[in-house]
Amino acid sequence: MVLFDRSGYNRAGVERVMGFCSDDDYEAFFRSVPEFERMLVRSGIQLIKYGFSITDDEQHFRFLSRIHDPLKQWKLSPMDLESRARWEKYTEAKELMLERAHIPEAPWWTCPSG
């Protein structure tokens, strides 16, 4: 079993919302990802994609915890603070990514996580 974090889908989320990729790069990602995933499945790999989703309130609580807890402050970066200000754009990007990268051979399963 191999677990990957969201970094494989950063182009559709972080890079899109923060302006780190062009529109062409973004669209190329969505042309490539479904075919890559189909290739994995054709090769005998069982690909299960889980998306863990938290509420805006929970994210706000977690950020406050990172700001005020000295043991968690190392987790907080200027990029995190900027990202927090773009919650709605991240949510829109996540929903679009789940829709566009959801294929019958490897569907997304979303789980509330707080």
Rank of each mutant, 00 (worst) to 15 (best):
W74N: 08
G13P: 00
R62F: 03
G19C: 08
A93K: 02
P112F: 04
S65N: 14
E37C: 02
M39S: 13
L71A: 12
S32R: 14
A101S: 15
P107A: 11
Q59H: 12
R38S: 04
I67T: 10
T110Q: 11
M18F: 04
E27K: 05
M79K: 12
K89R: 15
K72M: 13
W109F: 15
W109K: 11
S22C: 10
I54P: 02
R42G: 06
E35H: 11
Y50S: 01
L64W: 04
S77L: 14
I103D: 07
Y26A: 01
L81N: 07
R31T: 09
R6Q: 07
R100L: 12
S7Q: 11
G8H: 06
M97E: 08
L64M: 11
S113H: 05
R6P: 00
Y90C: 03
R38Q: 06
G51Q: 01
D57E: 12
K72I: 06
F61K: 13
S77C: 11
D80S: 10
D23R: 09
E82I: 10
T91F: 05
L96N: 15
L76V: 11
G19R: 02
T110E: 14
I45E: 09
S83L: 00
R11K: 13
D24N: 08
M1Y: 06
A93C: 09
E82W: 02
M18T: 09
R62Q: 14
E99N: 11
R6I: 01
A93M: 09
K75F: 10
R84N: 07
E95N: 15
E15A: 00
K49P: 01
G8S: 05
R38V: 06
Y50L: 10
F36I: 13
A85E: 15
E35L: 09
F61N: 13
L47Y: 03
M1P: 07
S83H: 04
L40K: 06
R66W: 03
Y50G: 00
L64Q: 13
S77I: 12
A85P: 00
V41S: 03
R100S: 10
G114F: 07
